[in-house]
Amino acid sequence: MTMDGTEVLTRTVTEDEATILDGWTGALRESASLQGGRIREAELQTQAKAVLGQFRDALVAGGLDADGESYAPLRETLADISRSRAIQGFTPTDTANFVFSLKEPVFEALRLKSGADASAQAAGMWAGGKVIDRLGLQTMEVFLASREEVIGRQGQEIAELSTPVVRLWDGILALPLIGTLDSARTGVVMENLLQAIVDEEAEIAIIDITGVPTVDTLVAQHLLKTVAAARLMGADCIVSGIRPQIAQTMVHLGVELNVVSKATLADAFAVALRRTGRKVVRQQVPTEGRG
């Protein structure tokens, strides 16, 4: 009796589905997925049952072609599972093991089924290994794509959070910069600032770089561009918050910032008030020896 591997595998999975499911859930239970407490046993069992059912249907309908039409529902289910795991913070190993741990019970069932027919067993195992590996890889691809999506979204959120434009007074804006300035961020910063200048009809913008850890030639160039663009729109810029070490580094590097710069935001604000014709005065001279 010679048997095709696909046939052996399909027959085994169809007839011994219950045994394989038991074996699989057992393996899943022992694996790390459950121990972190991120997923409940019942949920894991439901997922395993659904996946195995669809795996059987796909095998019957489409053989081993894991990229084919008949595997579409199974791929969809696996994609959903791996997406949710990526969001729940599972490790890649956990996620991959969910699919790969199906191998052991399937191979065991194949062994029992084939009995003495070693060639049928080998063919079945080869077929099973191939299709499960393919499914595992697809799962991992979705897992990684979801993780990257999460990282990308976080990056965007950080970029948005870290470039607020604050209105200090009528016509005076402040732009407190925090974190490293790269070209992408400078673009966002520049656009935000210029738009705010239009919206607020600002005369003076204070760029505060207290939170910028390093200023190299590139960052200085970005700053100068922003200042130049603001000037073109008719607003003056003051750079403030250059820390002593950074000032030293800048001078040693030969970076020249040909803009008005002040040591602190308060100094810059005072200059801005003076230029717009305002003055801060103490309302009352504090009297000595009170209280």
Binding site: E191, L194, I197, A229, A230, L232, M233
Partner: peptide, 17 residues
């Protein structure tokens, strides 16, 4: 007077300050 932000950025990128 009244230069738009996008125009200002373009001019700066072109090196025309």
């Amino acid at each position: 007077a009244g230069m738009r932000p996008a125009v200002a950025i373009t001019l700066v990128e072109l090196g025309l300050e």
